[in-house]
Design a protein around this nucleic acid. Structure first.
Lengths: 143, 143
DNA sequence: ATTGAAATTGATAAATCGTCTCAAGAAGAT
DNA sequence: ATCTTCTTGAGACGATTTATCAATTTCAAT
């Protein structure tokens, strides 16, 4: 019935491993989360208010942080807020961030990823995820 | 006597251009800032408490933001705090982070940096700083 | 199905981080 | 030295996120 069976199973696996429980709220938040590329807790709060007016903001924060631990999400702090990126089913994308107008351009680069793997291997690491953010000025803000 | 004559002149140029004043606090904070690769306002607050116990935290925030406008610093949101990067400092290092034992290995990779520049140029960006973190398991934790 | 231990929730208090306010003090031009 | 303007320090404030805790829900064991 639910669309994202694979991710639900991944979450359940994580929950089981840590003696946590699969709740109605966690399923609701996961379903909503997986339909976004990235979202803030506040945005999700308003979005889900229609489906469950009693869902608390604290629960959303707790659940999104849980998703980070389960490697379904990745938190990214920008400006005063925290963005939760969906890294589970899309190819992981990186960000170009304009420090002036806060514009964000997403990109993907296989060569960089390959070099990352090399660095990791050289140091005995096995990468599960990564974060790459390039900060600078976009063409308009450079004047 | 101050060591960073070039940066002090750059700051004075910016101040003059905007009808701002060169104060004891601004010089003190600049001297301290230029000795770091990156620092938070809070860290600087404690660090400078010895030299000037009356220096206010608000002044440090104001001054670090001023440095950003004068292109001496670059703000970057890291975790819950804001890191102020020293732009004149070059050797930027990246991190390999073990998600199990939290071991952190620093590395530098020119090829990756070159590819980052290419991506930025292709999108019309001029990079001033970046952040690359690879998350995974180190050799010991993989078993 | 019922029970009971353990985890989760919602509401809100509290903490955190950074900015704003404003009276008093410092800088710099005249 | 004077005068205008900018800056400072202290604390209030606003926004975001986390902690607290009693009531509720989950889920495994009856």
């Amino acid at each position: 019935m639910p669309k994202h069976v694979k991710e639900i199973e991944a979450l359940k696996a994580h929950l089981g491993k840590h003696q946590l429980k699969y709740t109605r709220q966690r399923e609701l938040i996961l379903e909503a989360f997986l339909q976004q590329e990235h979202i803030t807790a506040e945005e999700m709060y308003h979005q889900l208010a229609k489906k469950d007016p009693h869902l608390g903001l604290a629960t959303i924060y707790r659940t999104l942080n849980l998703f980070c631990e389960a490697d379904l999400a990745q938190a990214r702090h920008f400006g005063t807020q925290t963005q939760y990126d969906n890294i589970s089913h899309k190819g992981h994308h990186d960000h170009l961030i304009c420090t002036d107008c806060h514009k964000i351009v997403e990109f993907e680069n296989c060569e960089i990823e390959k070099l990352q793997e090399e660095v990791a291997t050289r140091n005995g690491f096995t990468i599960t995820t990564h974060r790459l953010e390039l900060y600078g000025l976009c063409s308009r803000c450079r004047h």
